[in-house]
Design a protein around this nucleic acid. Structure first.
Length: 886
RNA sequence: GGGCGUUUAGCUCAGCGGGAGAGCACUGCCUUCACACGGCAGGGGUCACUGGUUCAAUCCCAGUAACGCCCA
């Protein structure tokens, strides 16, 4: 039954082989209907242009851990995969290709361009799917969706029409954020603000009809003065009271504009006089509305000055700035230039400086939607974890502004609205109407704008399950169990899914939102191509294997903290994989001819060590269950790591050797059973974290398997019948004795090849029996040739001593070491103990502590002090004796 | 300007109201029949600073500083 395993773990072949097997056998498939309890997660759809980066790797590893875990727990698990059409990003990719051919999208025209994008997608889009598979992602690939596939497009149109009919979608001509390179509107959150060193230009505007009199305005954007339609002062600013109602003459242009008073003006800013440019500044736009000012747009869609800019027409906005400043200076109208730090908005796709731009766009009225989304979190229908993010969510939801959803690009869901050229009516419908619903004209033009990419993503939890059709999938899997994501898309995506889910499904889209960290480089910097500090997950996988990488991510995924990915840690977990592998090799080597099917757990007689490892295994299962339930991945990973390495390998495997090699047939059989049992359970516990190596080993284990894959084997649960706290505690006393002997060996530099004689003097009969009962373990793990156990034994004069609980350990030194070394060792040991004694004594001497601390705490401290004092006494006596030997 | 987070061993990070932990790195011994990607033993920390609460603070509270992030 058992197979030979290679000496070291070689991940690549194993990964490829098992992933292919799992996928082809349909183990990732979810049933639309099932008796099992459902558990569903929708993947945050990566951009179809995307390549796997650290963020994806973390995000998807965490989801896969949950899915594999829940699947093993017997749930009907759906992990819904797919990709996002990523409007602007994808259009940019194809436009860059065209540019390389010396063309732009207008050379192709809309239809051909879109066709070209589809072609690009078919050929090179979605490479990330293959990369997710290398990560081991157990998505139900047969259900893979795309935000622009037919079903999802229908969902998008349905939602748009319904929201329009509900009065929650409207058109308006106002200022939006405009990217002069992408030639499209952006929503507020698609603008990334960055601090820049800017300037504050002080410009003199001559007062009309009062030659020689000026007001000085301060501005960070002098070129927009071309569109000024007023200057404003604070109504209570005494410096300018007499000017209110008068006019100034706009320099360079000569247009006369009014001086108005508005409380928006900060008296302390600049000179207290500001220019008002309603078409190019968000605040000025509001002022303009209050005062009925004209809005003069001086830019075209590329950020070039238009005809309204008179002599500056055709100049780029930044060139115009330079020219205007120069000409103002020439005219003696430039008073001064101050340094001025300012925040500049950039397009989140291409980093171009965005322009507040006056245009007619479509909006979603979000206030009513936001209210429900807010309420759902406040009432706990959806939990956001870690909890601190709830406040961020509340803040944003409470201050939310209407969502600009139209984009002037071609790649995306075209807005289902048709304008009647005859009567101007806007017809919004699922499908192209043949005539105007108002006037019956057939002169209809479809809106050319497409929807914000995030509009379709907002529907993802239900559109992927077939909505608006009432499918079995929707019934079974909506709402989903958990959404795993980074905080960077909390607003872009999570908040909007909440709003749309509640509005259209009347239920939250997920009950938990788990927000994970951002992956940074080892120094805490954001990874970016320009900084050259990007670590490519695929390179890591090539180098260390998927399992090691996944385990690293899980171990780093502490809540509420960014991950600084240190490569040494990955190497450390690669070593861990190798350790698991070799533990399995050892176990299999010793299971030759062993058939677990013929052995029953109940009939075997277990040793102290057996019970200890069974107990620890049980505890580990309990901890993993608890921590994973709370999304405390790092704690699960640590518990598994410690158990595997420090307990199973370092102690149990070593303990088992003497029983396997020298034990009675019964002892040998029980040991083989416990080895098999522990390893088999451990593999299942580890599987969600390390899917490949666990499957590879599990398949090699002897015994009949109830399932064809470890993926479907039940996840271990802690049970009281396999909990042996007393035996485990006793075992730990044995381990302490072994530790004591090893300490002497180590400190005295006795090589492992040298066997030593040891005398154990126990303070009680109980302890003596325990030691005696486990003497073979002590002999074998401490490499003892001669072990004497008794109580009240006098310490031989030339022996080295160590104390473990109520056991004194004597190691006769003759021929091993010189007394000086022992003296030094004892002094060191006593030094350590003295510190402890001091601490406990101090505490117990304080009446306040003894009187007010809980009795059990005081008793505990007393016991500790007694133990430590006794130990010190023994060590001191032996130090005296050693000194005499000199 | 508003909000949030972080500060613990040389490095990367856990932890947390009652004797400071892990991995890597470091020192010593060891090619012990699973593993040198290993074993055993060991060194190393006024848990950022200042106050407060408490019998007891690395942990709770307040403030300070440095760094980072988000929003305006």
């Amino acid at each position: 039954m058992t197979k030979e395993l290679a000496k070291g773990y070689e991940p690549h072949d194993v990964e490829k082989r098992w992933y292919g097997e799992w996928e082809s056998k349909g183990y990732f498939r979810a049933a639309a209907t099932s008796d099992k309890k459902p558990y569903s997660i929708v993947i945050p759809p990566p951009n179809v242009t995307g390549a796997l980066h650290m963020g994806h790797a973390l995000n998807n590893t965490l989801q896969d851990i949950l899915c594999r875990w829940k699947r093993m727990q017997g749930y009907n698990v759906l992990w819904m995969p797919g990709t996002d059409h990523a409007g602007i990003a994808t259009q940019n990719v194809v436009e860059r290709q065209l540019a390389a051919e010396g063309k732009d999208r207008h050379d192709l025209g809309r239809e051909d361009f879109i066709e070209r994008v589809w072609k690009w997608k078919a050929e090179s889009g979605g490479q990330i799917i293959g990369q997710l598979k290398r990560l081991g992602a157990s998505c139900d690939w047969e259900r893979e969706r795309f935000t622009m596939d037919e079903g999802l497009s229908k969902a998008v149109r349905t939602v748009f029409v319904k929201l329009y009919e509900d009065g929650l979608i409207y058109r308006d001509n106002r200022l939006i954020n405009w990217c002069p390179r992408c030639h499209t509107a952006l929503s507020d959150i698609e603008v990334e603000h960055e601090d820049h060193k800017g300037h504050l230009w002080h410009i003199r505007y001559p007062v009309a009809g009062e030659p020689g009199r000026f007001v000085t305005v301060a501005t960070t954007r002098p070129e927009t003065m071309l569109g000024d339609t007023a200057v404003a002062v604070h109504p209570e600013d005494e410096r300018y009271t007499d000017l209110i109602g008068k006019s100034v003459v706009l320099p360079l242009i000569g247009r006369e504009i009014p001086i108005i008073a508005d409380e928006y003006v900060e008296r302390e800013f600049g000179t207290g006089v500001v220019k008002i440019t309603p078409a190019h500044d968000f605040n000025d736009f509001e002022v303009g509305l209050r005062h009925g000012l004209d809005k003069i747009n001086v830019l075209d869609e590329s950020g070039v000055i238009n005809a309204a800019g008179h002599q500056y027409e055709g100049m780029d906005r930044f060139a115009a700035r330079t020219r205007i400043v120069a000409e103002l200076e020439e005219a003696g109208l430039l008073e001064k230039i101050d340094e001025h730090p300012m925040s500049v908005g950039g397009c989140y796709r291409c980093k171009t400086v965005v322009e507040p731009y006056l245009s007619l766009q479509w909006y979603v009225k979000v206030a009513p939607l936001a209210e429900r989304a807010l309420d759902a979190v406040k009432t706990g229908k959806t939990r956001i974890l870690p909890k601190q993010w709830e406040n961020t969510y509340y803040d944003w939801m409470e201050n939310i502004r209407d969502w600009c959803i139209s984009r002037q690009i071609w790649w995306g869901h075209r807005i289902p609205a048709w304008f009647c050229d005859h009567c101007g009516e806007v017809n919004v419908a699922m499908d192209a109407p043949t005539k105007c619903t108002k006037c019956g004209s057939d002169e209809l033009r479809q809106e050319t704008d497409v929807l914000d990419t995030w509009f379709s993503s907002a529907l993802w939890p239900f559109s992927t399950m077939g909505w608006p059709e009432q499918t079995e999938e929707l019934k079974t899997f909506y709402p989903t169990a958990c959404l795993v994501t980074g905080f960077d898309i909390l607003f872009f995506w999570v908040a909007r899914m909440m709003m749309m889910g509640l509005h259209f499904m009347d239920e939250v889209p997920f009950t938990d939102v788990y927000i994970h960290a951002l992956v940074r480089d080892a120094h805490g910097h954001k990874m970016s191509k320009s900084k050259g500090n990007v670590i490519d997950p695929l390179t890591v996988i090539d180098q260390y294997g998927t399992d090691a990488f996944r385990f690293t991510l899980a171990a780093f995924a502490a809540q509420g903290r960014d991950i600084k990915l240190a490569e040494e840690r990955i190497a450390g977990y690669r070593n861990f994989c190798n350790k698991v592998w070799n533990a399995a090799r050892f176990t299999l080597m010793n299971l030759e001819g062993f058939d677990p099917d013929t052995v029953s757990y109940e009939t075997l007689e277990y040793s102290q060590g057996d019970k200890w490892i069974l107990h620890r295994l049980n505890e580990t299962a309990r901890i993993v269950d608890e921590t994973l339930t709370g999304y405390r991945y790092n704690e699960s990973a640590m518990a598994l790591y410690q158990f595997t390495w420090s307990e199973f390998c370092d102690w149990y495997l070593e303990l088992s050797k003497q029983d396997i090699y020298n034990g009675s047939p019964e002892r040998k059989q029980a040991t083989r059973y416990v080895l098999w049992y522990t390893l088999e359970n451990l593999l299942r516990l580890l599987h969600p974290f390390m899917p490949f190596i666990t499957e590879e080993i599990w398949q090699a284990l002897p015994g009949t398997k109830a399932t064809p894959t470890i993926m479907q084997a039940p996840y271990p649960v802690a049970c009281d019948s396999r909990s042996f706290p007393q035996d485990a505690a006793d075992m730990e006393r044995i381990m302490a004795v072994i530790g004591g002997i090893r300490n002497i060996r180590g400190e005295m530099e006795v090589p492992p090849s040298k066997q030593i004689a040891v005398i154990l003097s126990c303070d009680s009969e109980d302890t003596r029996r325990l030691m005696k009962h486990n003497e073979s373990a002590i002999i074998s793990l401490a490499r003892v040739s001669d072990l004497a156990i008794g109580h009240g034994i006098e310490k031989p004069e030339d022996a080295s001593i160590q104390v473990a609980g109520d056991v004194q350990i004597y190691v006769p030194l003759k021929g091993l070491v010189d007394v000086a070394a022992e003296e030094e060792r004892l002094l060191k040991e006593i030094g350590k103990i003295e510190k402890e004694i001091e601490m406990f004594s101090k505490k117990l001497e304080s009446p306040a502590f003894v009187d007010r601390a809980p009795a059990e705490i005081v008793a505990k401290e007393r016991q500790k002090l007694a133990d430590v004092t006794a130990k010190k006494l023994v060590l001191e006596e032996s130090l005296e004796k050693i000194k005499k030997l000199r």
